[in-house]
């Protein structure tokens, strides 16, 4: 079974009397373990689609099956639970809590988890997670004391703390220079290949998209190109358009 299955997803924003269709019928299926880049011109609806995929927003029409569950009919609280357990988010602007140490930023989602971890357990798990993103020596640093790449890695650790099967990243490298971008992307590739986490990231950068196994191109609310790259070895950067 597919991990993610979209069927004719539509999203229309209502601006007073005018309705603005942003997504105009998107069907898509994503299997466990894929590494996908979502590209497209600005305003094509990538972020809108990511919000729907991340259960932050509901589609106007269509069905969204996540792990065998139709999510567009779930209540707000059920969707919050789903986000906590099955989905991880990485944002372009990191969104770390300032004046809160790295380890506490990472442990934060645990406090909303159903399983009640003790304080010690939570910190232990957060420290382990930070170790996995290579920040074992930066546990008690505040975001302002970390570089952009390090901050994004803290954000990745936070996204993965509840061991979700899927990770969404909306322009995760948008605020980083090419060298730190590369670090983050390598981390994604490693998480994908070693731990089998499904990663879907939005990007404008063809070089970034080149790291993906599949590139989905969105144009004016419709999927234009959906190119699976057969083998990770053969490079076809940017995919077809």
């Amino acid at each position: 079974m597919e991990l993610i299955e979209l069927r004719d997803i539509e999203k229309t924003y209502q601006m007073g009397d005018i309705s603005v269709p942003v997504l105009k019928g998107i069907s898509l299926s994503i299997r466990q373990g894929e590494l996908i880049a979502l590209t497209g011109s600005s305003g094509s609806g990538k972020s809108t689609l990511m919000n729907i995929l991340g259960c932050l927003d509901r589609p106007t029409a269509g069905e969204y099956w996540l792990d065998g569950q139709e999510t567009s009919k779930l209540t707000t609280d059920e969707r919050a639970l789903l986000r906590n357990r099955k989905l991880g988010f990485v944002f372009q602007s990191f969104n770390l809590l300032s004046r809160t140490s790295a380890i506490e930023n990472v442990a934060m989602p645990l406090s909303y988890a159903a399983e009640n971890l003790s304080d010690r357990e939570a910190r232990g798990r957060a420290a382990e997670m930070l170790g996995r993103v290579g920040l074992a020596d930066r546990l008690d640093h505040f975001p302002s004391q970390l570089s952009g790449g390090q901050q994004q890695r803290v954000a990745i650790a936070r996204a993965l703390i509840n061991r979700p099967p899927v990770l969404f990243a909306d322009e995760p490298t948008g605020n980083l220079d090419s060298r730190t971008s590369e670090e983050v992307l390598q981390m994604f590739e490693r998480l994908n290949s070693e731990e089998g986490i499904t990663i879907i990231m939005v990007t404008h950068d063809p070089k970034v998209a080149g790291h993906a196994k599949r590139v989905i191109r969105l144009d004016d609310g419709l999927i234009q190109g959906n190119v699976p790259i057969p083998e990770p070895g053969t490079e076809t950067p940017g995919g077809t358009s």
Partner: peptide, 16 residues
């Protein structure tokens, strides 16, 4: 506001 949005994104419910 952003903190609230973030907490909600990682699974905080309204009542949390």
């Amino acid at each position: 506001t952003r903190e609230i949005g973030l907490r909600m994104a990682v699974g905080a419910r309204g009542r949390d």
